[in-house]
Design a protein around this nucleic acid. Structure first.
Length: 496
RNA sequence: GGCGUUAUGGUGUAACUGGUUAACACGUCGCCCUCUCAAGGCGAAGAGUCCGGGUUCGAGCCCCGGUAACGCUACCA
């Protein structure tokens, strides 16, 4: 650990983007930042990086708050709790970025680029075709003042790009920074692109906003995922352009799928909402995340690998983190969750079942779907068991429409999944989206809905599909469709 | 393609400043318990530490060279 005697108080942050369901990766990095701050009496800050308006999902921010709190990772400063360095939502800081972009423009460490997205795209295509690294050629970098004034007067829209120092083999030809876990990392400037800092819509990109905010919020340690290593030289260049002190960088290994690729929803549940709704305990998830990459002494609690958040704050050692990407292995997480379930007192266990599986609000919504459909109360379970089960496996007889082949049915289910992923989880949005897909693929509404019903409920008989899906929730519904598809793929390869 | 990072059983980790036969957990398999399934108990298989050189009395740990995987390569983060 590098630390100087004139150390500023430790301040760390996580900066998730509200682009969908909160991600396990956010929880992982959040956990690490939380521990780091607590170990050093520092502050843990939550900042919302909502500068990408095209991917913005309104409900997402609240879900991030809820799921991080559910895990026990509370923050000292953030959009909802305030703090002395606000606002903590980047969309509310656009004026700040504007001002800072002007500073860069004034000292020539950035420049206006009037190229259109189409032109850039064309250049990229040519570069890729010529097997050259796709890079902005610097066309607008040498515009004269007159040319710039002319373009401005003509009302041309522009971006602002970082002017990466020239690379002529002198001392400015590369940027070196220290990663606290890996040591010095060097990038030659001819491998660093003139990154866009301000988009033409007036919003900053991550690179600018992140550096400006980290500095203004007095962040001392940037603890983030490994995927950021490649863009760190751009950030270092920015700190230097502003004349600011550079924080410490800690790049953490990336969580992986079973096949070692970066963890993704295609191959693994990644939504924290999914884990919550599927009956995982926050203690188990935190514990499991704490196992990823090591950091805890092996002999803690007799080597059971079981420990609490408080114990992590007490014993976790950052410099012991292993750098290989750990596989997020659901099998082991389930074992751990089972361990925590067994440790509960009978009364607490009952309470968990009562609130998490048979919560009042959940039951109320299901009941309202069932009132007209049963003749004795005890028939309630007959049509609703899928709401309370984890393992729903429809037989081929159940899900395969009479006039369709297995192949086209699975292909259509795949399309349904894509539509569901992209659709807001309300009856009003889901119905037209699914029907539109059916029309495009010439599947009747009946075939369309029956297939989805079979996949989600395991049966051809159920309460109304859309209403049921809304009650059941997006995270679990999507997971069920994905698991169905996976299982069918495995069966198909077995048959071969 | 370019750049960067990483590399210990199937998976997650351990192995003090190089020092017995590479340890633990999950998973797998078997046995015990038992009305079933779990849980629990006992036991087994499974890596010679990505590969090839080098230094050393001795290398998973140090050096050199490869390879592979992953990440980045956006007016996304």
């Amino acid at each position: 650990m590098t630390s100087t005697s004139t150390e500023a108080p430790i301040r760390v942050r996580i900066a998730p983007s509200p682009t969908g369901d909160p991600h396990v990766g956010t929880a992982y990095i959040g956990l690490l930042n939380y521990i780091y701050a607590r170990q050093r009496g520092g502050k843990f800050i939550l900042r919302i990086e909502d500068t990408d308006r095209t991917r913005f999902v309104p409900a997402s921010e609240q879900m991030i708050f809820d799921s991080l709190r559910w895990l026990g990772l509370g923050w000292d400063e953030g959009p909802d709790v305030g703090g002395p360095f606000g606002p903590y939502r980047q969309s509310e800081r656009t004026e700040i970025y504007r001002e800072h972009a002007d500073i860069l423009l004034a000292n020539s460490t950035a420049y206006r680029c009037f190229c259109t997205p189409e032109e850039i795209e064309e250049i990229r295509k040519q570069q890729i075709a010529a097997k050259l690294p796709p890079r902005y050629p610097g066309t607008c970098r040498h515009l004269t003042k007159a040319q710039i004034a002319e373009n401005l007067a003509a009302g041309k829209s522009y971006t602002i790009r970082l002017a990466v120092p020239p690379h002529k083999g002198d001392l400015t030809s590369s940027t070196t920074f220290c990663d606290e876990l890996r040591g010095n990392i060097t990038f030659e400037h001819n491998n660093v692109d003139d990154q866009v800092l301000m988009k033409s819509d007036g919003f900053p990109t991550y690179h600018l906003a992140n550096v400006v905010d980290d500095h203004l919020m007095q962040i001392t340690d940037v603890i983030r995922a490994e995927e950021w290593i490649s863009s760190t030289p751009k950030h270092v260049l920015l700190y230097k352009a502003f004349g600011w002190e550079i924080p410490r960088f800690w790049h953490m290994p990336l969580l992986r799928n079973l096949d070692k690729s970066k963890i993704s929803k295609r191959k693994n549940p990644v939504s924290l909402i999914y884990y919550r709704d599927s009956g995982y305990l926050p203690e188990a998830i935190i514990n499991f995340l704490g196992l990823m990459g090591g950091g805890m002494p092996g002999d803690i609690n007799n080597g059971t690998e079981q420990f609490t958040l408080a114990e992590m704050v007490e014993h976790f050692v950052f410099t012991n983190i292993r750098l290989g990407g750990p596989v997020f292995d659901l099998t082991k997480l389930k074992w751990l969750n089972g361990e925590y379930l067994r440790k509960l007192s009978p009364e607490d266990f009952f309470h968990q079942v009562r609130t998490r599986v048979f919560g009042d609000e959940y039951l109320r919504q299901i009941a309202s779907l069932m009132q007209t459909r049963i003749e004795t109360l005890t028939q309630f379970g007959d049509l609703t068991s899928f709401f309370f089960s984890d393992n729903v496996v429809p037989s081929q007889e159940t899900f395969l429409p009479k006039k369709r082949t297995l192949e086209e049915t699975l292909a259509f289910a795949q399309d349904q999944l894509a539509v569901l992923e992209a659709t807001e989880w309300t009856h009003e949005a889901l119905e037209p989206a699914l029907k539109k897909l059916g029309e495009e693929k010439t599947w009747s509404v009946k075939e369309n809905f029956m297939l989805l019903r079979a996949i989600l409920t395991g049966s051809t008989m159920s309460p109304p599909l859309l209403e049921s899906m809304v009650v059941f929730g997006k995270a679990r519904s999507l997971d069920r469709v994905r698991r169905f598809l996976d299982a069918q793929k495995k069966l198909a390869t077995q048959r071969k």
